[in-house]
Design a protein around this nucleic acid. Structure first.
Lengths: 170, 170
DNA sequence: TGATCAAAAGACATTCATGTCTTTAATGAC
DNA sequence: GTCATTAAAGACATGAATGTCTTTTGATCA
């Protein structure tokens, strides 16, 4: 069971025992929900079967209306199909499995800070790099590569079938 | 010149030509300002010389009052010295140069999401990993290692002296 | 001592991501 | 055609990070 705690005030002292490990948010909730949603639909809608938003949100225990917005966005972009009305719902299409995580990240708005300097320095760039530029740039590249080279289909085929099954089974 | 653009609405379509590169915020503005501030103070206050907040904020072109809060935090944690009143200001102390970036990241509150799953899945953990768990975990570790193994002093000694000079010179 | 200066502290504003609810539109069942 | 059902659309609420301003505290200088 994972829970995300966000500190409220920069002035507030850290609690004792706070683990000294850092990993920023990096990828947003929108992204996480989107990916979970697509994986669930893809794994559960084999024969053109449609899955309703209610079912998806309930299964994934994710905020229903918020997920709705995210799914709508994916449908609009053609990553998923959606049909209104009776027996409507979301389903996969030809492109779903070939969609990269990078595409998903773009759609969920992770991106426009793409060259945000770690120092938040106005003057940092390749020619006048900040002291951290060369240290962090390779790591950023690796993230990009990983996201760009992994598709929804990859995750369904090769990775953690248990997890997918546990999502799809409920 | 770097500028950070943040999208407003998840429903808003992406503008055409949006570069297909992803790098999340990863480290906050607080962190960036803190690091810039410390580097500036450290590089400009050789002989116990104190630097005023006004000067720092102006030089770095960083929001003055916001930076004030960040610096206050650093002072309270002993990473910097601060003196009020006439000829007061911020200066380095014995621990400044030995402070790791991880410590800075802790102080600026990057942290409490440290095991935030990329999928934002409630059920993701080492024993029941989500499909991305094993892909992203090593990258997260690398970030941690990089932050933990780099000190303020390292940056001043070994990295990009031009950048430091350009900060300190103004 | 009193005036002045600079950081500390705290109140308040703004913006964005996230989350919730209501209304509209489209599709299938009858 | 009407009704039920379901996603789309849009209005609104909340919380956290960021940003600004005012008041307080503590130090120095005259």
């Amino acid at each position: 069971m994972m829970s995300i705690k966000v500190r409220t005030d920069i002035n507030q002292p850290l609690r004792e025992g706070t683990p000294a490990i850092f990993v920023g948010m990096i990828l947003s909730k929108s992204f996480g929900y989107a990916l979970q949603g697509v994986l669930y639909v893809a794994s559960a809608s084999n024969n053109n079967g449609k899955i309703q938003l209610d079912k998806i949100a309930e299964t994934l225990t994710v905020p229903r209306y918020f997920l709705g917005k995210v799914m709508k966005r994916l449908a609009k972009e053609g990553i998923l199909n959606s049909v209104k009305g009776h027996h409507g719902g979301f389903s996969i299409n030809e492109t779903t499995l070939h969609t990269s995580l990078l595409k998903l990240a773009e759609l969920t708005g992770e991106m426009e800070q793409f060259d945000s300097c770690v120092l938040k320095s106005r003057t940092c760039n390749t020619r006048n790099p900040c002291p951290l530029h060369h240290k962090f740039e390779p790591l950023k590249k690796k993230w990009q590569t990983l996201l760009a080279s992994t598709t929804i289909g990859d995750l369904l085929r090769k990775e953690q079938p248990d997890f997918i099954r546990s999502i799809a089974a409920i």
